[in-house]
Simulated assay, not measured.
Amino acid sequence: MAGTKKIALNIINARLPGYSDLQQICIDRGRITQILPMSEMTPAQVLDVAGDWISLGGVDLQINGALGLAFPEIEAGDFPKLEGICEFLWRQGIDGFLPTLVTTSVKNFQRSLAVIAEFMQRHEPQQAKILGVHLEGPFLNYHKRGAHSAEYLLPLTIENIQRVIGDYTSIVKVITLAPELDTTGEAIAYLHSLGITISLSHSQATADEAQRAFDRGATMVTHAFNAMPGLHHREPGLLGAAIVHPGVWCGLIADGQHVCPTMLKILLQASGYEQKIFLVSDALAPLGLPDGTYPWDTRQITLKNGTAKLVDGTLAGTTLPLLVGVQNLVHWGICDVGSAIALATIAPRKAIHLPEFIDSNAAQLLRWRFDGTTRELTWRRLESILVTSG
């Protein structure tokens, strides 16, 4: 039987986020080798995308589960479920993601970290890749805990950090915490020394407290606006300090429920769009499942139209995929197409220092088409045309 071989190809007349003119993307042996202006055509087979947008797939730095599996509840026998999630997310246009472990017991943290660490040793084509883990808790402010379980919150100390992370420092990429809990400054400095990205949220921090955390190495804010004081003209708070700090990235949920479109636009304009903001899904375990009531730790959440709430009405999260946020921003007229795409594809890579385009696998490429009449933005993977029968 004939196999398949990867072809040499130039994708021409492509719009790319961050470029003002049409470009060509040079692909050789399945890897992206160059991005060149159309004036510098090189000999190769060509795919003319006629002005459509081309990007890598999305990177989701905050996702709590999918297809019914919550990442804090992963057990040793869940490899098939994890594989299913990775395949599902690939079909949703996601190249890589950080499974997010929300506040739970130390035992559950350790078990989930162990399973994910082992699973990360494998990676198959046409699967989103686990890039590491995001710990959202347990070092959160009780009064801004949101849907996090109060019984598992812990004081922010080096000893407790070591208990939670254990031997899995190498796979913990991001940790969300409330900086005001670090009264000595030692805990944040310790996490920074481990090379873990420190993100602030679920917090009542003042602007001064946030600034001290940034000085000690924090570089991110988790789900901006949510689980923190709002912007105020005399009390800018954590978010205000982040907006004016040149080295701090803010994650943003663009489902229209967590943050209203007007405030989305204010934050994006104030922060320079993909220069300091990246989109996250913050999707919960029912991602990919229909509306209904589902278990959530020891409680239940009700899912309706992609929004999940606890019984008392507390917003727990969403089940909309990451790239829906891109489509929303364009449809609402908040972003131009290139900026919106960059918020889910380029910006999250920059925020955790991943390579962006050159030498990436060409199978990751997405082709985006914008209908100016309906303001609808659609996408599809290009992988099917990047291989041919040999």
Rank of each mutant, 00 (worst) to 15 (best):
A2N: 14
L9W: 03
D21C: 09
I27C: 10
R31F: 13
I32R: 00
T42M: 12
Q45H: 15
L47N: 07
G57T: 02
G57E: 04
L61Q: 08
I63Q: 06
A76G: 09
I85K: 08
R91H: 13
R91Y: 13
D95C: 01
P99C: 02
V102D: 02
V102W: 01
V106P: 00
V106A: 08
R111K: 13
V115N: 11
A117P: 02
Q127K: 04
I130T: 04
H134V: 00
A147Y: 03
A147C: 13
A150Y: 10
A150S: 14
L154P: 09
L156A: 06
T157A: 00
I165W: 00
G185F: 01
G195T: 05
Q204S: 13
D215R: 11
M220L: 12
V221R: 03
F225S: 12
A227W: 02
G230K: 12
R234L: 02
A241P: 04
G247K: 15
V248Q: 00
V248T: 01
A254N: 06
T262Q: 15
I266L: 15
A270G: 07
D282C: 03
D291N: 09
P295Y: 04
W296L: 15
W296D: 08
T307I: 13
D312H: 11
L322I: 01
L322P: 10
V324A: 15
L329H: 02
H331V: 12
H331Y: 14
L343G: 06
A344E: 04
L365S: 07
W368M: 05
G390N: 15
